[in-house]
Design a protein around this nucleic acid. Sequence first.
DNA 1: AATGAATGAGTATTCATTCAT
DNA 2: GATGAATGAATACTCATTCAT
Lengths: 190, 190, 190, 190
Amino acid sequence: MRVKDENKRKDIIKHTLDIVYEKGIAGVKMASLARKVGLSPATLYIYFKNKEDLILSIFSELIGEQADLSLGQLNTELPYKLKLKKIWLQWLNFSINNFKEKAFIDQVKQSPYCEEMTVKGDLKLHDIGTLLFQEGKEQGLLKEVDNSILKAIMTAMLNESVVLILNKQMELNEENADTMFSMLWDAIKS
Amino acid sequence: MRVKDENKRKDIIKHTLDIVYEKGIAGVKMASLARKVGLSPATLYIYFKNKEDLILSIFSELIGEQADLSLGQLNTELPYKLKLKKIWLQWLNFSINNFKEKAFIDQVKQSPYCEEMTVKGDLKLHDIGTLLFQEGKEQGLLKEVDNSILKAIMTAMLNESVVLILNKQMELNEENADTMFSMLWDAIKS
Amino acid sequence: MRVKDENKRKDIIKHTLDIVYEKGIAGVKMASLARKVGLSPATLYIYFKNKEDLILSIFSELIGEQADLSLGQLNTELPYKLKLKKIWLQWLNFSINNFKEKAFIDQVKQSPYCEEMTVKGDLKLHDIGTLLFQEGKEQGLLKEVDNSILKAIMTAMLNESVVLILNKQMELNEENADTMFSMLWDAIKS
Amino acid sequence: MRVKDENKRKDIIKHTLDIVYEKGIAGVKMASLARKVGLSPATLYIYFKNKEDLILSIFSELIGEQADLSLGQLNTELPYKLKLKKIWLQWLNFSINNFKEKAFIDQVKQSPYCEEMTVKGDLKLHDIGTLLFQEGKEQGLLKEVDNSILKAIMTAMLNESVVLILNKQMELNEENADTMFSMLWDAIKS
DNA sequence: AATGAATGAGTATTCATTCAT
DNA sequence: GATGAATGAATACTCATTCAT
C-alpha cells in the first residue's frame, strides 16, 4: 500500500495561497492547482472534499493559527504601552511574514464562500482586543471610545503598514516601526 | 439610426455595482446582469466591448469621479486643520454614500482585471494627497514622515470608519465624526 | 435574432428515447446526445435545465399523452366485453407503436430520477382502471377481486404481449390479438 | 498463501444486490460497495476482474440457481393442474423471498451489461417451460397456443403477483395465492 | 440598435481501475 | 491476499461571447 505523504496536503495549501495571492480566489482552478502541486486533479479530492472545502479548510486553519499567536503575550509584566507595542510589532511581523495568508483570509472574508461559516477564530481575536483595550482604559491611558473603534484603528494602521512595506514604499526597520506605532499611539492615547 | 441610450448604460453600471457588492466580481455573469437590467445579453456588448471592458470602464469612471470631488476643496481659505477635516468629512460622506462604488473599486484593485491597467485616477488622487500634506508640513503642523505614510493612515482611518458605520457598530453623526477625525489628527499632527 | 426552432426540442426528446431504449438511462450522456441531435452540448441546456429536467420532462409528457389516450373510449355504448377489448387493443397498439416511450417510462420509474416526483399521469390511469373494472363488476361480468389485481393482470398481459411481439415471437395480427385478449378475458371473467 | 475467502465473495454479492435494489445498477460504485463490505476497493478486484465481471458473474449465478430450483418438481406424480400449481407457488415464493435477486436479474437484462452475453440459464428455464406446457397440452388441459405465449402469461402473472405483494397491495396467503393461480389457470386452460 | 438563440472553451467533480507496499 | 493512495478518462454543467435576424 502506498503511504499518504502528509506533505502533500501542505503543498496543496501552499500553492493555493500562492494562486489566491496572485489571481484571487476565482483564479483557483482545481486542475491547474493540481498540476502545480504535481498531482492529478482527482488526487486533490482525496485531501479536500471539493473546492469549497479546500478554501474553507485553509481559512479555518489560518484563522486558528493567527488567534493562537497573540494569546501568549497578554500576561507579560511590561508597562502597558510597551506591551501594546510588543503585540503590535508581533502582529505586524506576522502579517508581513504571512502576507499571503493574510491576503487569503481577506479574500475569503469577502467571497461567497464565507457566507455560511461562523468565523470562530475571529471571536478569539475579538476577545483579545477587548482584554487589551480594557486594561489600557483602566490605567487611564487610552481614549474613552468604544473598543470596536480602538480595534478598528489598530487594525487599520496595521493593514496600511503592511501595504506600505509590501509595496516597498516603506522599509521594515525599527525606526519605521517606531514611527508607525507612535502614530497609532498618538491616535488612541487619552 | 437610434443612438446608444445613455440611461441604459447607467442602468448596466448600477446593476453591476449591486452585483459586485453582493457577490463579488466573480458573481457578475453577463447573462444574469442583462436579465436584471432588462436587456438581452447581446445588448450589453453594444455598450461595453466585453466583460473586462465593462469592469474597467466602470472602475475608471469611479476613480475619476472620486478624484474630481476632492480637487475643489483644496483652494479654500480655511485654517489647515479645518480644511483637512472638511476634506476628510467629505471623503467619509462620499465613501458612506457610495459604499458600493467603493467596494467595487477595492474588489477590482485586487482582481486580475486590474493587472494591465495603469490607474490614472489614482495618480490624480496621489497628487492631491501630496499637495495637501505638503501644505501641512510647510506650516509645521504635520509629522515629518513620508507623504505615503500620511496618506496611508488617512486612508486607513477612513476605511475603518466606513466599515464601522456600515456594520452599524458606529452611528454617522457629528460627534463620532469628530472623534474619528481627532484620532486621525492626533496620529499625524507633529 | 435567430428564431427558436421548435423541432429542436422534439429532436432532443426523440434521440433521448432512442438512447434510453438502446442503452438505458445511464447511457444518456449530454455531450453525445447533443452530437446526435446536431447541437452543441450547451444548447441542450437552453431547452432543458439539466439532465434530470430532461428525463423528468419527457417522462411527464409521455405519461400525460398515455393517459389522455384512453379517456375517450370509456363512454362508448358497446357491450362491456367489446369495450374492454377495444381499450385493450388500443393500449396494445399504443404500446407497440410507442415501445420506446414505454421502455422509457419503465426505466425512469425504477430509476433514482423518479424518486421525488409524484406521478400525476399514473393517477389518471389508475382512475380509468377503477371506472372500467367497476362497470364490469356491476354487470356481474368480472371476478369479485380487488381492482388492483385486475389492473395488474391486464397490465401484465399487455406487457408480455408487447414483449412477444417486439421479440418477433408473435406476430401482431387480429388472430393473435384475439387469442391474447381471450386469455385475459378468461382470467378475469367471473 | 492465503486463499480467497469465500465469505467475502458472498458479502460482496449480497451488498451488490442491496445496492442494485435500492439505486439500480448505475448506483453500484466500486468504492462505496467496497466500503460497505468492509474491504478496500482494490480487494474487490481480487474477487472480480472488473465491474462488468462483478455484475455478470452475479447474474449468471442467479440465473443458474433459479433454473436448478424448478427441475426437481417436474417428475412428481401429481395431477397436472396440481403440479402446475405447485411449481407456480414455488416460483412465487422464490420470487418473493428473492425479490432483490429478481430485481437484479431484471435490471441487468435491460442494461448494456447484458448485451454481449448469451443467457444460458434462461435457456434452461425455457426448456422446463416447454416440457411443462407440452405435458399439459398432451393431456388436453391447456389452450393450443404457442408455448412462448403460455410461458409469457405465466411469467406475467407471477411478476404482477410479486409486485402486488411487495407493494403491500396484496397479502401473501393461501387464499390470495389460490385466487391468482385460478386466474392464471382460467387464462390458459383449454 | 436590439435581441434570443447558439456555442466553444472551459471547470468542478466522479469513478473504475491500477500502483506500490 | 490485502490495502489506501493515486489517477486518467470521462461527464454534467457554465458562461462570455457571437450569430442571424
